[in-house]
Amino acid sequence: MGAGHAHTLHHVGDSPVHRLPAHVKIVAAFLMVIAVVATPREAFWVFGAHLALLVGIWVTARIPVAAIAARSLIEAPFVALAVLLPFFATGPRTEFLGLSLSVDGLLAGWNILVKGTLGVLISVTLGMTTPVRDLLAGLARLRVPGMVTTIATLMVRYLEVIAAEARRMRLARVARGHDPRFLWQIGPTVRGVGTLFLRSYERGERVHLAMLARGYTGSMPLLGVPTTGRRTWAVALAPAAAAVLFATAGYA
């Protein structure tokens, strides 16, 4: 698992963070995100403390900062929004480098930027230290509805199958001289998407049949349930507890 294909988020490793059970990490990450979101936006030092906690986790997990940065690019559109806010928000204004900026907008932009970034970093850290299948098993263990985890499990598996099917269909079009350059030539491609949908739907029916044949009754079996000791929970939740403390201190 891990390297390549659909699982590029995961960063293979064997650190104490990697070895923690997935459901414990999911709870810890969720608590940390809540703590970050609950931190008042003016309590600037608290965000620094949150970041320090994360850096500590990265060092323990031995994951390179460059890899984290590359996976955090998903946040870019939100950054753009945050940067625009100070220009367009209303209320009292302040001067900076000759630009007139809204104070409220500045704070709102900062709020989105810092909380969004920390949230993405926490999620990326979770994703990098936990393989997708463990994440799904962890969610199931946390009693997330079976339908949700089943859909996610099948999606992880079949995205590649459907992508491969789409590639074969494209090749079949190209091989017969289809070379779309203008918008009005896109017809066959669009019809291809429709065909792909139908084929995926039919495959879904066949997969369901194959699942029934092996005793599927509507819920995925929990495979390899490990028992998690209090110690493991305590270790994993320590950074989250610290984040909650910091957030509380931010209100003081």
Binding site: R206, M211, A213
Partner: peptide, 13 residues
């Protein structure tokens, strides 16, 4: 039952 297309049968990660 072993179905004809293994991609239908093998659905786990």
């Amino acid at each position: 039952v072993v179905f004809q297309d293994p991609d239908d049968q093998l659905f786990m990660p």
